[in-house]
Every structure is written in structure tokens, then in C-alpha cells.
Computed example of a mutant assay.
Amino acid sequence: MTIGHIFHLIHVTGDLAELEAWYDDVFGVRRGFLDNHYLEDEKRDASLVVLGDVVIEPLAPAFREEGWEDYPLGRFYRRFGNHWHSIAWYCEDDIALWHQLQSNGIRILGEAADQPPSEDPVPIFTHPNDTVTQLEFLPTRMAITGLDPRFKPDFDPQWWRTNHPLGLHGMAYTTVLTRDLRRATHTYTTVLGGTVVGQSSSALTGTDDVYIRIGHSLVQLSIPNRGGTLAADDLAAHGEMHHAVCFRVDDLDRAEDYLRSKEIKTVARDDHTILTDPDTTHGAPFRFTCPAPGAA
């Protein structure tokens, strides 16, 4: 059930054109993977855009379609508004993964809900209550894998470091908020096969954190340890869910100056990490980090 690269991170919005223009303007994302795509089965519009080593899916319910609010993504938007939604990974052995999830009591949604994948592969979606946030696993044998620009020989994930004002290396980690750190850690290690690579407490974010390597990416599981923070407010308002994405940059001061020029406000920072105001990033918390010299 090998889990590999992140397929995408979904950023839900009520104005897809505005959000896509923002990603183009602020990050200079690479396009051509999937643009302006409507999916009838989900009544949603979306694109896939590449930023460093990760793909982000700006997504909105198809408001023009009757009944959009009755579909899962429509219900999510009505409840949470603009927010990070979920994490999707590529997986090598989707059949083994399906059985692993089932045997551990993880509810599966979508076409694979009632029976394991067959010769015709389909994405596997988890129930968000069982995996802290919704997770998707896309079999690498599906055709869309071959369209991913990151797997093309001419793709340079360091382009944003050498050519963009942010000096962006790629994704450092993505954060999932939980009320039960032990249960969440069990799910992401024992069930999903991740490896704990660190634990810490952050005065900046006001959280206790466990860092888990899953496939090629790092997930930060976090529980707030005090109130009055972005994490605490998000958990109180929305419950357990996908909370933030953190990108590594070369120079934190330079990155903050650039973000300010794009009207993105800093809500808190220390010597190594910036937390941006989600009101200035379309409802989704972004972080930018520049590790101390000698840090991994």
C-alpha cells in the first residue's frame, strides 16, 4: 500500500476566478495540469496548479448548477466557507490500502465505499471523522498520473527558489488539527504507515505537534495548548480538519516583505516562521519557514 507523493491539497473558495488569479499573481504557479475543470459527479469547478514540489487544487462548488449545496463539497462550503479541505496522495497498491483502511475501521466514501478497487481503479476517499480530515488516495495506475508536470523530465521544483521573489524551496509540511493527538498519531502511523520523525511544542502556533513522514511529505499533527491562536480558533470554529500549509523559503524577512507587497498580512512570527492572516489568503492559513542554520 505504498503511499508516495502528495497528489494535491484542496483549497475551497466561493470565488474560483478570484482565487486562481491570486495564485497566479502571488506564487506564479505552473498550469496545464488541469484547468477550469467541471466534475458533474461532485458539482464542482477546479484547477490543479503546481507550486514547487506540491500541487494545489483551487476548488469551488458549481454554484450555477441546481442542487450544488446538497453535494459533499457544497455542504463543506456552506459549513466552513473558504478553507483548506483535504490532502490527497498517490498510492501504489490501492487494493492493499483499501483493505488496510477497512480492517482498521476507517469508513471509505465514493465509488470504493462498498468494495475494493478492481481492474478499473478509482480514488479512495476516507470519512474525515475517521482520519482527522478527509484523505484521498489516487492509484498511480490511473491515467491522470501521467499528466502531472512534476513527473516530467524537464520539471524543476527549484524554479521558485531561483526565479521567484519568495525564494521558495517547496512544502515544508502541512498541518492537521486534532483534539486527540494520540489517536491521530495512531491513524497516521499504524494505519497509514507513516513514521514519527519529531515532536515539539510551539510558542508561536500555541500547539503541541507530532511530525509524521508519509510518502514523500511531512504532516504536522497539532493540538492547541492555549487559546487566542489561529489554530485554537480554527479548531473551536470548525473542529478537526486540514488547517495550514507551510512552505520553506530562503530568507524570512525577504519573504515577509514580498507577502506584504501582495497585501498578505503577518498575524504572528518568530525568528524562523511566519503565520499569515487567513483573511488575506482566501481563508486558508499559510506559513513560511526558514529553518535555523544547520537544520534539516
Rank of each mutant, 00 (worst) to 15 (best):
V210M: 13
V49H: 07
H11D: 03
R141C: 00
G228C: 09
I212W: 09
A184T: 13
Y23A: 06
R287I: 01
W160Y: 03
Y211C: 04
F288C: 00
P285C: 08
E111P: 11
P149S: 03
R75A: 00
I10G: 10
D24T: 00
D24V: 03
A236R: 15
T175Y: 03
A17N: 15
Y211M: 08
H127F: 01
Y188F: 06
F80G: 03
T289M: 11
A46T: 09
Q102S: 02
E136T: 03
F27L: 11
T190G: 02
I214F: 02
M171G: 03
T189L: 00
F137N: 07
L97P: 09
P157N: 03
R31F: 02
I214Q: 10
F7D: 15
H272N: 10
E136N: 03
E65S: 06
Y38N: 05
I223K: 15
I108F: 08
A96H: 08
R226D: 01
V12A: 12
S103W: 07
P165V: 04
A284N: 06
G170Y: 11
F80N: 09
R30A: 14
T133E: 05
T273E: 07
W160S: 06
V191S: 02
W68A: 01
L19R: 13
G105C: 07
F27H: 08
G294M: 04
I56Q: 01
D114M: 04
F7Y: 14
Q102I: 03
N129W: 14
G215Q: 07
T140R: 15
L147I: 10
Q100D: 11
T185V: 05
G105T: 04
F151R: 06
A113C: 05
T289Y: 09
I106K: 00
D279C: 13
T175Q: 08
G146L: 08
G52F: 12
D250E: 09
T178F: 02
L204Y: 06
G228P: 06
V249S: 13
E111W: 10
G167I: 10
D130R: 11
E256D: 10
H282E: 06
